[in-house]
Design a protein around this nucleic acid. Structure first.
Lengths: 133, 133
DNA sequence: CAGCATCCAGCTTGATACTG
DNA sequence: CAGTATCAAGCTGGATGCTG
C-alpha cells in the first residue's frame, strides 16, 4: 500500500526473528514492548503532543515515553515534528511504515481485548485445577 | 471462526489496554513479550515438545521457556499434553484461541521482518543526523 | 511545554544444580 | 526428557532535579 517493500511470496526472508542475532528482533521489541505498543496504538488515532501522549498511555513515565519515542523514531515508525515556538510544541505522528505496523498491532490488540472473557475463564480453570497459585 | 466471542462492532469494549489496571494488558504482554511472541510463532507451525521449542526459539533459557509456557497455558492460548510415559513426553500446541492470536501476531512479525530494509535505512539516517550515538 | 541527567531499588533473567 | 529450585547480576524503570 505504501512504498515499503514487502518481498514477493516464496522468497526466503533474509530477516528472521527466531534467530538470536537478527535485528528484526529488536524492532519487534520496540513495537510490541509495553510502551511501544501503546504508543503506536495511541498515535494511530492521529498526531499527539508529548504530554497528550503521556496522558493517553496510562502509567507511562516521562523517561520511558521519551525513550520509547526515540526508538520508534529511529526505526522510522514515528515522525517527530518540533515547532520552534516558545513554549515549544512537538507533535508526534506515525510514518506510513508506522501506520502499517500499527494496523497489524491494533488488530492483535483488539482481538486480545475482545477475548478477555475467554482468557479470564481459562485462568479460573487453570487456577482451580492446581490448588492455589 | 472459532467459538471465541468477539463482540459486535459498535459496542464499547469493556477491556482496554490503554488503562493501567486492565488485565488485557497482562495478556498482551504474555503474547507480545520476547519469548511469548516467539513461542506462539513457533507453535503456529504445529505442536512441539519442550526441547524442540527450546531449539526453535533461539536463545531462550529453560527457565524462561517454562515460565512463558505456563503463562500462555494459563491464559488459554496453549495446550499442554503430557504423556505418562518414561521418559516423559510433553507436547505443546495452540488452542483455537491461541491460533487466532498467533495469526495476528505473525502478520505483524512478518510485516516487521519484511520492512527491515526500510528500518535499517531509517536508523542510518537517524544516526547520521545526530552525530554518534 | 518538552525534555535530559542521575541515582538506585527491585524485578527479570541467565547459570547452575538438582528431581521425577 | 521435562522440568523445578536457587542465587547473583544486570537491566528496567520510577523519582527527582534541572534546562531551554
Amino acid at each position: 500500500m505504501t512504498s515499503t517493500e514487502q518481498r514477493p511470496e516464496g522468497q526466503e526472508l533474509p530477516f528472521n526473528v527466531f534467530a538470536k542475532a537478527c535485528p528484526s528482533r529488536d524492532t519487534l521489541e520496540h513495537v510490541t514492548g509495553r510502551w511501544g505498543a501503546l504508543t503506536l496504538g495511541a498515535l494511530y488515532e492521529g498526531s499527539l503532543r508529548f504530554n497528550e501522549l503521556r496522558r493517553r498511555v496510562d502509567g507511562v513515565s516521562e523517561k520511558m515515553l521519551s525513550q520509547t519515542l526515540h526508538a520508534l523514531e529511529r526505526d522510522g515508525l514515528v515522525l517527530r515534528e518540533a515547532q520552534p515556538t516558545n513554549p515549544p510544541r512537538v507533535d508526534y505522528e506515525l510514518t506510513p511504515l508506522g501506520r502499517e505496523v500499527a494496523e497489524r498491532l491494533l488488530s492483535l490488540i483488539r482481538y486480545v481485548e475482545g477475548s478477555m472473557d475467554a482468557v479470564l475463564q481459562a485462568r479460573d480453570r487453570y487456577d482451580a485445577t492446581r490448588g492455589a497459585r
